[in-house]
Write a protein that binds this DNA or RNA. Structure first.
Lengths: 213, 213
DNA sequence: TTATTTATGTTATATAAATCACATAAACTC
DNA sequence: GAGTTTATGTGATTTATATAACATAAATAA
């Protein structure tokens, strides 16, 4: 299908915008609206849709309801998206309690750690010992994990996970991991993002263009 | 200079790799080494360097020491990079204590919140009332803030910050903000990153290529 | 010292991604 | 219902980004 790597990210953004428009009582949306909201050109919006056979009306734009539910299926948002958090330090625990996740249908089902002090199997979202990770993800069919372990533990943890049904991780350690064969890594490198921001502020020629949206 | 938007990110990655190579006792590095580590072609590594007049030896590669210190200047890593955290909920506090930041020379100098229960002006990293933000950033010449406030507060906070010396933010709320004139926004959208990972795992044609590095 | 190797620096080429532009069809107007 | 408007859907074009290719110079070897 010649899928541009950024398309899916944009579809997700369009969807979020439309969900908010819907809350405002709006029924239709035009490519111009989404273009403004997401910061791209209207033709790109239309092309993105057309690429996935999401069609509108030659004059009346797109029906929000229709488009959102089609996007839900397309993006897999019609299914429960279960994740586990590996490493329950401050950051891991923050993610476990992060209310942005349930709001978009992402459910954190358990945390894992090696430190006995943080374990709590009876909590609403249990924190279990890391040695139970393989059993748990297998039993609960977990395909995605967030990695919030210390940097030196990251690679080992990935190696462990590769032997399970987990097919991808969000890595919060500043060591960027590479994706491989059937195992995807998305790096959330906060350190790098801040470094980059500093650079753009202090050195980048101040062209009035955006940096990202 | 026709600066590709991704170049700086890559330079930062090269730098991190070289710092680790240096710890291993290595002295020289070749474009092939960095290409492998970062997941790009060797010619791109050389082009990135040449774009900033970072030169090596026609045969002997690049001297790590030399290159790292030049990159430090170029990326502004020779200066202290001070940031404040706005919103000291679980996530904000996790960032305040995150040891990945000091390791790369990023110093969290204060947190801000409106909830009296979390304020603590005497802590090593003080948590102050949000009403003091303008004074503080002015007095301490802060140009970068991390935004970990609830989604409904984000836009208002940005509007406040725009009137100060803060020139950019890392936004952790799932609402993607746009950069404008002299105010840069980098969005860390964890929700979207996870959604995207789910999509790639469940729907993407399993081409053995990477997704990112 | 001359020949050979090898990794850089840079130009030419290929690939990817976004925008432009316009023909088309649905909805409005008179 | 014929004419006009307007927003889609898509092929052509532009721009951005990365790779490939190679001439060049430093290092080694003979």
């Amino acid at each position: 299908m010649n899928t541009n790597h950024e398309v899916i990210r944009r579809l997700s953004k369009y969807r979020n915008v439309m969900r908010k428009m819907k809350e405002l009582g709006l029924v239709k949306v035009f490519s111009d609206n989404l273009a403004d909201a997401v910061g791209v050109s209207p033709s790109l919006v239309r092309k993105d849709f057309s690429m996935f056979n999401l069609t509108g009306n030659k004059r009346g734009g797109y029906r929000i309801d229709d488009l959102v539910s089609k996007l839900n299926v397309l993006l897999g948002k019609d299914k429960k998206q279960k994740v586990v958090i590996i490493g329950c330090g401050k950051l891991g625990q923050a993610l476990m309690n992060h209310n942005g996740f349930p709001r978009v249908g992402i459910r954190v089902v358990a945390g894992f750690d090696s430190d006995p002090a943080v374990l709590d199997a009876e909590a609403p979202i249990p924190i279990l010992h890391i040695k139970e990770i393989k059993d748990f993800v297998t039993k609960n069919q977990i395909s995605v994990a967030a990695l919030t372990v210390p940097e030196p533990c990251v690679q080992g943890m990935v190696d462990t996970l590769k032997k399970t049904c987990v097919k991808g991780v969000i890595n919060f350690a500043p060591l960027p991991l590479k994706s491989s064969d059937g195992f995807l890594v998305h790096n959330m490198n906060m350190e790098q993002e801040i470094e980059n921001l500093f650079y753009n502020i202090h050195f980048a020629e101040t062209n009035p263009t955006d940096s990202d949206i």
